[in-house]
């Protein structure tokens, strides 16, 4: 075996239910940790409050995306229908008063752009895709997507300490406490 340098990612502790995880999260929050997260197979209702997180700002970006779609569709139609290629069909006008006929496409592109902003922002804000995360080195962590509930306190948290964080997690009722290390 070669001597491999390892970097400590943090402590992983398992909790037995969504309820236990929720109460553990409240206590981690109150203890003042900042660089930590909980991992669960499904979103737990109220967990954002228990972790002290604010509402996601994603909606603002979706609004901007949707508005971009509306404006794009308007100019796409106005420029092609009124300026460069006015088509007179059934004596309908080809000017700004044609606007009502442009609404369906404006609506569809609003939805399309907003939907793309929503999914792109969701992954960008979460810094995904990321396939090489240190937590994937933990064998027990695989069960997060099945039925296990974890708290992970990261080593880069200023309050992190090898001994105290471990005993803190033990005191919260965590089991299978593991020091997750990543190969450098």
């Amino acid at each position: 075996m070669s001597t491999q340098l390892k970097r400590v990612h943090g402590y992983l502790a398992e909790f037995k239910s969504a309820k236990a995880l929720y109460h553990a999260a409240e206590q981690v929050r109150d203890a003042g940790y900042k660089r930590w997260d909980v991992h669960s197979p499904f979103p737990i209702h109220g967990m954002d409050n228990a972790m002290g997180l604010k509402k996601s700002i994603l909606s603002l970006f979706v609004l901007i995306g949707g508005a971009t779609g509306t404006v794009t569709a308007f100019f796409l139609q106005y420029v092609t229908q009124v300026i460069i290629y006015p088509t007179i069909v059934q004596n309908k006008p080809a000017n700004i008063f044609t606007l009502p006929a442009f609404f369906p496409v404006m609506f569809e592109l609003t939805i399309l752009f907003a939907a793309f902003s929503s999914i792109i922002c969701c992954f960008v804000f979460n810094q995904l895709p990321r396939f090489n995360h240190p937590l994937f080195t933990s064998e027990q962590f695989k069960r997060f997507s099945d039925d296990a509930f974890f708290v992970c306190i990261e080593a880069r948290d200023p309050m992190f300490s090898r001994e105290e964080t471990r005993s803190f997690l033990e005191g919260l009722g965590g089991s299978n406490i593991e020091l997750v290390e990543d190969e450098v």
């Binding site: 979103p43 954002d48 979460n126």
Partner: peptide, 10 residues
């Protein structure tokens, strides 16, 4: 990774 900081945006 099922992280709650991800579920929030998700």
């Amino acid at each position: 990774r099922g992280a709650n900081r991800h579920w929030r945006h998700y």
